[in-house]
């Protein structure tokens, strides 16, 4: 089966010499929920831009269900819906007209476009706002319109660039549920996000992109197993002299024993037995595991928290 999206040795050098993509490869299977995670300026939006035709390609190729994004752009673009990070609305028209126009650009007849618009407005709880203009809507509603615009022509592949940026928790969860639902119904979703929880909750596979290169690709669990740290934290009631935990080394931090291992749940009984045999009394045992966020920090040297804070402060500025 052809991948929904495939990117081979993709390169982008912007005017002025900035090399935004340094030959990245991605293969996103049909029906998957895929995350592209990376700090600001890593190349996420450039990658999406090339796939959707907003950015000119420097080298390599991008294809959509086997259709080349440059030479077969008509077939390729028809299959994709894009929700850009920055809200962008045609200011002359109402929400309903906007969606009808967008469906029309993809070749829907006036009648079909109206029907698709009605469905989208219902699904996003915007039916009452059909005749309102975007500027009259709240931030959350605008974001819903933005996503509806990406879906109005019923594309097989949906690309969402920071879909929940700046929305409240309730709407974020509503959008997550909606995205899960359309993914289960068969749509392939490519998501970029600053919210680690979003990637962990939604994505089957994640690629971490940094400085124009893909540095890791796997499921969130495997990424944390491969690049993160996990182990056991054991609190003893009293200190045991010359404790050995074969074959592991351990650290004693604030009276708590930390043993790093890949599968702490499997090895827990073994470790406990060794401690008991050496006369130790155990007060508490806990499994610790690195989060995807720790993995991200380890791989990129940048914290997503900083990214979030930067991003949110930018948004706050825009809202002034």
């Amino acid at each position: 089966m052809k991948p929904a999206l495939e990117v081979k040795n993709l390169r982008k050098v912007y005017e002025g010499g900035l090399e935004a993509l340094k030959g990245i490869n991605l293969s996103i299977p049909q029906g998957s929920f895929y995350g592209l995670l990376g700090p600001n300026g890593a190349g996420k939006t450039t990658t999406i831009g090339i796939i959707t035709g907003l950015v000119n390609i420097t080298g390599g190729s991008a294809s959509v269900l086997g259709f080349d994004s440059v030479t077969e752009f008509r077939q390729a673009r028809k299959l994709i819906g894009l929700s850009p990070q920055e809200l962008n609305f045609d200011v002359f028209f109402s929400i309903g007209e906007l969606l009808e126009l967008q469906a029309g650009y993809y070749g829907y007849s006036h009648k079909e476009a109206k029907e698709r618009t009605t469905i989208m407005l219902e699904q996003f709880g915007l039916t009452e706002k059909r005749k309102s203009r975007a500027r009259e809507l709240s931030g959350g509603m605008k974001r819903r319109v933005q996503i509806a615009k990406a879906l109005v022509h019923d594309p097989k592949i949906v690309i969402l660039d920071e879909p929940t940026a700046g929305v409240d928790i309730e709407l974020r969860h509503m959008l997550w549920n909606y995205l899960r639902k359309i993914n289960e119904e068969g749509k392939t979703i490519l998501l970029t996000t600053h919210y680690i929880e979003e990637a962990e909750q939604l994505c089957e596979t994640i690629s971490i992109i940094n400085d124009g290169k893909i540095i890791a690709t796997d499921s969130p669990n495997k990424l944390t197993q491969a690049h993160g740290m996990s182990g056991l934290e054991i609190t003893l009631t009293s200190k045991v002299a010359d404790l050995t935990l074969d074959p592991w080394a351990y650290n004693n931090i604030d009276g708590k024993i930390h043993v790093n291992m890949n599968h702490p749940e499997k090895e827990m009984a073994n470790v406990i037995n060794q401690i008991l045999k050496q006369g130790g009394e155990i007060e508490n045992v806990q499994i610790y595991r690195s989060s995807l966020e720790d993995v991200f920090l380890k791989l990129t040297g940048k914290s997503l928290h900083e990214e979030n804070e930067k991003f949110e402060s930018q948004e706050a500025l825009l809202n002034v």
Partner: peptide, 12 residues
């Protein structure tokens, strides 16, 4: 206002 992107991403 960047809504030209809505047109640039279409099959036109």
């Amino acid at each position: 206002l960047r809504f030209i992107e809505d047109i640039l991403i279409t099959p036109l």
